[in-house]
């Protein structure tokens, strides 16, 4: 059947790998978006920009300080998380008592500020970031580039790590409870304002981590986040923001679908996720894993 479509097996697996990688980024970003929205009621428009910052920080660490990829994998997300904490404490905190739309508008403003600044500093063209794991591995059915394998394996591990943290640990139970009733959790003696700051920083750091992973694949570009975030919004609408596992499954699934579309009918690869979103909205408005709020 694949022969009819004029698709070779290596090409199929190649696109599947790329689809998985994009899916991993969708999953990591929609995870953070869902957790932030759950606790802060803020649609974090600047999430894509925080992904971009992760990649950019990795590039800067290498370029200015000579710190290689493996160091950046730790340091860049921490940096993005710190920037996130500052944003929460200085700006977002004032908006919790007003309409949720204002949080979205504020973070949209932050997108313009951060992207505009780095476009001014570095221009809009991509800056290459060298592959830390050159070469490839023969998996029998395909020859896979090592770095892409690493991204798939590592991001799956991170996703499930986050799932475990939120669904199975004491810390996660504080988070789940605070999403339901922050006032009551605080009345039990837990410092909820600090928890909110840390949660926002954590979500931002996850996006930053995805950015570091993306740097060797997509180059580093101040604009790399803003187009991604719109797709991630669609992913979130499709999956519904209620479930962590839902976000992971939807993210990876849509990445794969997008990869396959690129192969079968590449003109539609940019729009396929939006089309799926429209269909899901018409059939199940709350999203695949969501409950209508």
């Amino acid at each position: 059947m694949l022969d009819v479509l004029n698709i070779s097996m290596p090409m199929l697996f190649g696109q599947l790998t790329l689809g998985l990688i994009n899916g991993a980024f969708y999953a990591l970003l929609s995870l953070g978006l869902a957790v932030i929205f759950g606790l802060l009621n803020v649609v974090n428009f600047v999430h894509g920009t925080q992904y971009m910052l992760g990649a950019l920080f990795a590039w800067m660490l290498l370029h200015y300080l000579g710190i290689p990829y493996w160091g950046a994998l730790l340091l860049a997300p921490v940096g993005v998380g710190l920037v996130g904490a500052v944003i929460e404490v200085t700006l977002l905190r004032r908006l919790y008592s007003v309409d949720h739309l204002y949080g979205m508008l504020l973070t949209f403003g932050l997108v313009l500020i951060i992207e505009g600044f780095f476009r001014w500093l570095y221009g809009a063209s991509g800056m290459p970031y060298s592959n830390p794991l050159p070469g490839g591995t023969n998996l029998g059915f395909m020859f896979a580039p090592n770095y892409r394998l690493w991204v798939v394996v590592f991001s799956v591990a991170v996703c499930f790590g986050v799932w475990y943290l939120i669904e199975r640990t004491k810390l996660g139970s504080y988070l789940r409870a605070a999403i339901e009733r922050p006032d009551l959790v605080q009345a039990f003696g837990i410092n909820v304002p600090r928890m909110i700051t840390l949660t926002y920083a954590f979500g931002a750091a996850l996006a930053g981590l995805a950015g570091v992973l993306a740097a060797p694949i997509y180059q580093v570009n101040p604009l790399m986040g803003s187009n991604l975030i719109i797709v991630v919004f669609a992913v979130v609408v499709i999956g519904g923001m209620g479930s962590i596992m839902g976000a992971i499954v939807t993210g990876f699934g849509l990445g794969i679908i997008e990869g396959l579309t690129k192969m079968i009918y590449s003109e539609a690869s940019n729009t396929i996720i939006f089309v799926i979103m429209a269909i899901v909205l018409l059939i199940k408005p709350a999203g695949l894993f969501g409950s209508q709020k």
């Binding site: 004491k170 139970s173 504080y174 789940r176 409870a177 999403i179 339901e180 009733r181 959790v185 039990f188 003696g189």
Partner: peptide, 13 residues
């Protein structure tokens, strides 16, 4: 809390 089981509810405070 509906997203916590009984033991988690008990040990939350």
């Amino acid at each position: 809390f509906s997203s916590l089981n009984v033991q988690e509810n008990l040990e939350l405070p």
